[in-house]
Design a protein around this nucleic acid. Structure first.
Lengths: 339, 339
DNA sequence: CTGAAAGCGCTTACAG
DNA sequence: CTGAAAGCGCTTACAG
């Protein structure tokens, strides 16, 4: 790589000190009361030499890297890819750059990523925390490293977060299924304790309870994140083949719905006649399904934007208190719920 | 943020110089012949103080940031999100971190991103170049900044790239349509001059020519990237309503297919009976379409991995000559082509 | 075997 | 109005 031109090169060419050059190029001539003529000479030389400041050096001096670390479960997942994009855009508006990493819902990977990014001096984090990563979050707190959680958070830990109201969204979705005439409603969720999943289960359960539809056996099936394909087949079969079988299934995430629909197709159940379906989050796939899915539309763009705003506020110390934001989702009703 | 512990802090606590600490923590005691006892003391103190090296300072000194800049059209696009993921994984294996940005196929944005990332001292770039960004690529060349292009490249410009054989893939796809009995085949592509699109058009044209199916009017329709929804509707209608109408459409990308299928649905054409369809790249959506799409399966994982490997070779100077890699795609035949 | 010193590219308080 | 100097956190050639 070619040797880059530095302040020193400009200073030499102009016959002044690097200090002068620094003042001029950062538009601080006034406080330093630099002469107009020399300032314009410096600027010209900088331009001619195609000077590019070394942001690493700047960061080292200032202690601010203007970089945000983004940790999601999987950047190739549509949901997180969309969030990443809004975070990128919002960060850029504020002159921040984003470094990302995928944790695969694995706390060790997540910890690895946090370490690496701390060493790279990110100014703060936006994290969709994995299960069992409480200590990592507490570590960030203890180090006073700014961060905001998205999608999930830990109720027991003081922190900023931006999430959607999963309880409300889930309640509404299930209520919709009830209103469209379904009385045996199963739910496919993940086998984990993350708050967003728990809240979705709670919304489901409460909606059933409020309508006297709770059965003696739980109809919530839990799938292992690391074994989705097999687990989901087993669980859906149980829901469909038990007596009495369910006539509707509520999927807790779009990935689950995607896998679940394949099983349902394989079993030749027709949606919504044999079985009604509702799920969380949109997906291109759901638009093209023969029976377009009714889904909970989470406000991804707002989540991303709000997370960046809060984080930058915290980084710049405008607001040191943790802030919690909960945004409502909207139920988009289509054919799959038999409306 | 808490004050971080530095080499100096450890040096003070151990009563030695920072130089010693640096040698020990970087496992270079041998060349510096550091005493075993003092080395272990230093290590212990570092551990107790939870020392985290400042990679910014390291980079400034070494001139290597161990960071890769990734520029794609849109990180929220499934195709690029998948590539980003494989690049992330491969980079991490080599102890590199990736900073990303979306150009939105806009050369100004792309130039912006390149500047910012250069200022942040990335060691190299992986870029899916936009139309009219030739000068940017030449600039990187002139500065000897390592980079490798993916998905597209500029035939006139010397550079490393990893792409798929778009001509072959396209030829095969269209040949398949011909073999399944279609004789009026339209193509929906983008209105641009990027090589991957041109090659796809060339493959299409050649396949028709080899089978004496070229019509006097071009059946290649070009859609403006910034106005997909409207443009595609107009163009598909032209293909379908002209005399004689087409009986098959080949979509040059998955985004085009996604939009196109919506139009076809709206017009109530049944696939594959009224119209056969083949497209580039997979998509969850295509699996769930009532008539699953026949598509060109590009080897995204290999493209990502290979790009990282070549880039790192170039960064570490193992291989200075540009390398061009072309990988074959595979046609996945399903129902939409009427096989 | 160990340390003082220079330097990576910047900024900024200080002195003139 | 301008410059010398210190320092951000690190590495490494050099001197002892």
């Amino acid at each position: 790589m070619k040797k880059k031109v530095s302040l020193k090169d400009i200073a030499q060419a102009a016959g002044v000190s690097t200090a002068l050059v620094s003042y001029v190029l950062n538009n601080k001539e006034k406080e330093a009361r630099v002469g107009k003529e020399i300032a314009s000479v410096i600027r010209e030389i900088a331009k001619k030499l195609d000077y590019q400041p070394n942001l690493l050096a700047k960061s080292l001096k200032s202690g601010k890297s203007h970089t945000i670390g983004l940790i999601v479960a999987d950047i190739s997942n549509q949901f997180f890819a969309n969030i990443a994009r809004t975070i990128e855009d919002e960060a850029k508006k504020n002159n921040y750059t984003v470094i990302f990493g995928s944790s695969d819902e694995n706390p060790e990977k997540s910890w690895d990523l946090i370490s690496v990014l701390i060493n790279r001096q990110v100014d703060g984090f936006i994290i969709a925390p994995t299960e069992n990563s409480e200590r990592q979050i507490e570590y960030l707190n203890s180090q006073n490293i700014p961060f905001v959680l998205i999608d999930r958070y830990f109720p027991g830990i003081q922190s900023s977060y931006v999430a959607t109201d999963n309880y409300q969204a889930s309640y509404e979705a299930v209520l919709h299924l009830i209103k469209t005439g379904h009385d045996k409603i199963g739910m496919i969720a993940y086998k984990n304790n993350l708050v967003h999943i728990k809240e979705r289960k709670r919304g489901y359960t409460q909606a059933l309870a409020d309508n006297n539809l709770l059965s003696e056996v739980s109809l919530i099936k839990e799938v292992d994140f690391n074994n989705i394909t097999e687990d989901i087949e087993i669980n859906i079969k149980e829901l469909l083949f038990n007596k009495p079988p369910v006539n509707a299934i509520f999927f807790a995430t779009n990935t689950l719905a995607l896998h679940g629909l394949k099983v349902i197709n394989k079993l030749n159940y027709k949606i919504p006649d044999d079985l009604a379906v509702v799920c969380f989050d949109e997906g291109d796939a759901f638009d093209f399904f023969y029976s377009p899915l009714t889904f909970v539309d989470q406000p991804i763009v707002e989540v991303g934007k709000e997370a960046v705003r809060i984080l930058i506020d915290q980084i710049t110390n405008k607001n040191i208190n943790p802030r919690q934001v909960s945004i409502s989702s909207r139920l988009v009703i289509r054919k799959s719920s038999g409306a």
